[in-house]
Amino acid sequence: MSGYLSGVLAILGINIIFAYSIYITAATGQLNLGGAGFQAIGAYACALLSNELGLPIYLTLVFSAILGGAISFLIAFPVLRTKGVYMVLATFAIAEIVAGIILNTDYLGGPTGMIVNAYIETEVVLVVAVIIVILGFYIMSTRIGLAMRAVHDDEAVADLMGVDKRAIQVGAFTIGGAIAGLSGGLYALYFGFIEAQYFNANISIFVLLYVLIGGTQTAWGPLVGASFFTLIPEALRIGDDWRFFIFGVIIVIMMIFRPEGIVTRDALERVWRQLFSGKRNV
């Protein structure tokens, strides 16, 4: 594998994992605009555990996920009190606070960042990405996934059907935080250097857009969204500025023609019908 290709694949893997973290909450109807904060938590946890305690890579990754999940779980209760725009803003605030705390903590390197001693190959990122994608599909294929989508569509009716919407939302938020932490840990280990400035509002916005453009109705959405926006610019070999400009144009156009995202249930159903030209149980 060439260096360039392996670099692109690693970024793709990290983006896909990150996208699933946001997707899990979005599937219950909640927009998390603070992804970068949870990713930062995982990245710094991983870096510290590796540098200070010399833990093996796999353990540091597990702890990134656990810490991301634990912090998400704790803040899920106050955050999920908020709704709609307030929830978007609250998660946004959390990411800003996390970045602010890192910038002000000398132990974490403050604004100068932190070098990570341990190192992983692209293959590790890809294996973890595959596991997370399978996990995402698995969750959405169960009754829990069904309940999550029901909460997304109509909280009140889901509640009357016996769905514990609070448990579903807190659970989704926690799992999302854990996966975001994991993606941060992978980022830290792969790039070997982390700084608070990287985990900024733009990162949170991009990952949310991957998910929304991919589509929140099925587990295909984040996979398609993250891959599309990571690979297309690479294929076109365009500069960073143009890349984001085109990204913006695509979003505006997408919202006009396919506001529910690239992959929708109806589209999937049509594709399956054509492939197997018969009735199919979803």
Binding site: I205, L212, F244, F245, G248, I251, V252, M254, M255
Partner: peptide
Amino acid sequence: KHGDATEHAIPLVSSLGFLLIFEYIILI
């Protein structure tokens, strides 16, 4: 198109798209 422009956070997402467009036009 939808009768309700506030549905599905569509305008919010679209406005994020315009944010990128304007910002990167200037950067370019």
